[in-house]
């Protein structure tokens, strides 16, 4: 197992290297980071533009730019944004935000989705199955924007008004916290409990949105997996032993369905590190999705490269985790 992991990590290095080249080619073709500066009227002094080109390395050939970026990146220096902010600070902050949002929502989605999927499969063609399957399909096909806007209107604006907290809303629609929550004039807000409450009041809607749109996928997937395993011969064998139905479903059918479900979940997780772009945008969480959108709209090469890098690492890492989990869950797979 250990040698497998080491080997996989070693294989990942050239993979990352390749990914960084692809990302770099994409990035340098995204556009001119100084386009805004160049199209100003009256023109930005040519000397200033020359200075910025020099600072950003835009006057250098792509290979030289790449090598210089890579050399620094290997040493953990991802450079500065076009607004001269340290890129790694921004990305690591965003990573934290995304994790806070995605982790909780993903755990909930998986728990709810898998539970519903399993029950649906066990009670195939029951009213529960029909309701859950139809509901999951509906939610699965709903656009995030629609879900988000609806929740904002109903669960925030209307609900806050209804409970008489229109001025001091209980449920928040934007950001991961109130920006002026803990100020010198409100020292009572500067503790762990108020901070947590504030966080929860902000996290509710985006979490709910993510759960609503993603649990359905897990429900459908685990229902399908369960239906497959429930019809497997070994489940029939288990029943023939006189085991309780509960044991048959959980220990035999679900345990086997779990292998594929877990793999899908861990691969999903890797992709989510890149950011829940739409949800983050709608609810103004400054996570990885926002970093991506911002770096593209602002044509910020270093920021975009760092995003690519972190996302690539996450995808590769979670692929590895998926493999390890699969091997852990399925004794037929041997990792060495």
């Amino acid at each position: 197992m250990l040698s497998f992991i080491i080997r996989r990590i070693l294989v990942s290095i050239p993979l990352l290297f390749l990914a960084s080249i692809v990302a770099f080619i994409l990035v340098i073709n995204t556009g001119d980071p100084l386009e805004d500066l160049r199209t100003k009227q009256p023109p930005t002094p040519a000397a200033t533009i020359a200075l910025r080109e020099h600072q950003l390395g835009l006057d250098k050939p792509p290979v030289e730019r790449y090598v210089s970026w890579l050399t620094k990146a290997i040493h953990g220096d991802f450079g500065k944004t076009i607004k001269n902010q340290p890129v790694w600070d921004e990305v690591s902050r965003a990573l934290g935000v995304t994790l806070r949002l995605v982790l909780f929502a993903e755990i909930l989605s998986v728990l709810i989705g898998v539970t519903i999927g399993v029950i649906s499969a066990v009670k195939q063609y029951s009213w529960f199955d029909y309701t859950a399957t139809t509901g999951a399909f509906l939610l699965y096909s709903l656009p995030v924007l629609a879900v988000g806007s609806f929740l904002k209107y109903v669960l925030a604006i209307r609900l806050n008004r209804w409970i008489g907290r229109a001025d001091d809303p209980l449920i928040k629609t934007i950001g991961e916290g109130t920006p002026n929550f803990c100020t010198p004039s409100k020292p009572y807000n500067c503790g762990f409990i108020p901070a947590t409450t504030d966080f929860l009041s902000h996290a509710l809607l985006p979490t709910l949105t993510l759960v609503l749109i993603s649990f359905a996928g897990y429900a459908r997937f685990s229902r399908a997996s369960m239906l497959e395993t429930l019809n497997a011969d070994y489940v029939r064998t288990a029943r023939s032993k006189g085991l309780s139905e509960r044991r048959v479903i959980l220990k035999h059918a679900f345990r086997n369905a779990l292998m594929t479900v877990v793999t899908v979940i861990s691969l999903d997780f890797g992709a989510l590190i890149g950011g829940a772009i739409l949800t983050e945008t709608i609810f103004e969480w400054h996570g990885m999705g926002r970093v991506l959108v911002e770096s593209i709209t602002k044509i910020d090469p270093n920021l975009l490269l760092c995003w690519f890098f972190v996302t690539a690492v996450a995808v590769i890492a979670f692929n590895l985790i998926a493999d390890i989990l699969y091997a852990f869950l399925d004794p037929r797979i041997r990792l060495d």
Binding site: I157, K172, I174, G175, S185
Partner: peptide
């Protein structure tokens, strides 16, 4: 005002919803 806070909300409709919700 005792304090004035500048918050970043990129999306126009998110700004509108937050204003209507009394957050900003």
């Amino acid at each position: 005002l005792e304090t004035l806070t500048l918050q970043t909300i990129t999306d126009a409709s998110a700004q509108a919803a937050a204003l209507e919700n009394g957050e900003i």
